[in-house]
């Protein structure tokens, strides 16, 4: 865990899309799935997302996302249908109504909504470097200080993680007997010293910031740049257009 990110190095389609456009697409997708649309609309979006995922990050990553959400989907499918009692009966056991057509559609809608949100989020972070994501936030008028804090968090995570691992290592090196491994008993002192090591870095991190000029009133420049605005605007329009088409095709109202 020395680099805290799920970013996956690749060259697929989504890697060429501007980070800002991807963030906008994610937000629209999350709203879209809650709009009053037909089941086929959500199904279309899900299929679109899965194919996008195949094409951009490959089969292995796609199945990994699927695996992570499968238990949840199963839970939704098992529990939800039985609440919907009205409508066309689909399954009747000994005169008891078990499942209706509406119930089935309802539960599938719920699962595919969850499915779409998950895929959209995962794809964003699998194909966008943290730097680009933070730059995108900055261009959406998130204050610099917030962005810096987030980037400092990412800078600090590996240090604390390493410290934690080395502290647990040093605990194992102090055992007197090879058979006794008191993991739980050791957890508390390990956490304590990991915290002490972390807290110790606070003043020095503040020193580092100021010694690099943090606090100056001059206008900051950026070493990194996202792609040009032309690209971003073109991509954003394309995304909005796509969702408009989906909405108009599948709207219930």
């Amino acid at each position: 865990m020395s680099s805290a990110t799920i970013f996956f190095e690749g060259k697929g389609f989504l890697y060429r899309v501007d980070a800002r456009a991807k963030v906008i697409a994610l937000l629209i997708a999350c709203v879209f799935v809650f709009l009053p649309i037909y089941f086929s609309g959500i199904l279309t979006l899900s299929i679109l997302l899965v194919s996008l995922s195949f094409y951009s990050v490959g089969i292995k990553n796609t199945t990994n996302i699927l695996k992570a959400i499968l238990p949840m989907i199963i839970l939704v499918i098992i529990f939800s249908p039985f609440y919907e009692r009205s409508g066309t009966p689909l399954l009747i056991y000994k005169d008891n109504l078990i499942l209706t057509y509406e119930g089935l559609i309802h539960s599938l809608t719920l699962s595919l909504r969850f499915f779409s949100i998950t895929f959209a989020c995962s794809l964003l972070f699998l194909t966008t470097k943290m730097n680009a994501f933070i730059l995108a936030l900055q261009s959406f008028f998130v204050p610099y200080k917030t962005c810096l804090t987030i980037s400092l968090v990412f800078r600090t995570i590996p240090t604390i993680f390493d410290a934690f691992n080395q502290i647990s290592d040093s605990h194992s090196l102090r055992r007197s007997n090879q058979l006794k491994k008191k993991r739980l008993k050791n957890l508390f002192p390990t956490l304590t010293s990991a915290l002490v090591v972390s807290l110790k870095t606070i003043p020095s991190l503040a020193m580092a910031l100021e010694s690099r000029g943090y606090g100056l009133k001059t206008k900051r420049t950026n070493y990194h740049m996202l792609s040009s605005y032309k690209y971003f605007i073109f991509q954003t329009i394309a995304i909005i257009f796509l969702f408009m088409v989906l909405l108009l095709t599948f709207k219930k109202f």
């Binding site: 865990m1 805290a4 200080k145 810096l148 804090t149 400092l152 968090v153 800078r155 600090t156 995570i157 240090t159 604390i160 993680f161 934690f164 956490l191 990991a194 915290l195 972390s198 807290l199 870095t201 606070i202 003043p203 991190l205 503040a206 020193m207 910031l209 100021e210 943090y214 606090g215």
Partner: peptide, 23 residues
């Protein structure tokens, strides 16, 4: 006024929460 120290404090404690969560 100590904006750098405040920023560092928040950043480090946030990172602590992250590490404890994924540990």
């Amino acid at each position: 006024s100590n904006s750098a120290l405040r920023t560092s404090l928040i950043a480090v404690l946030t990172a602590v929460v992250v590490v404890f969560t994924i540990l």
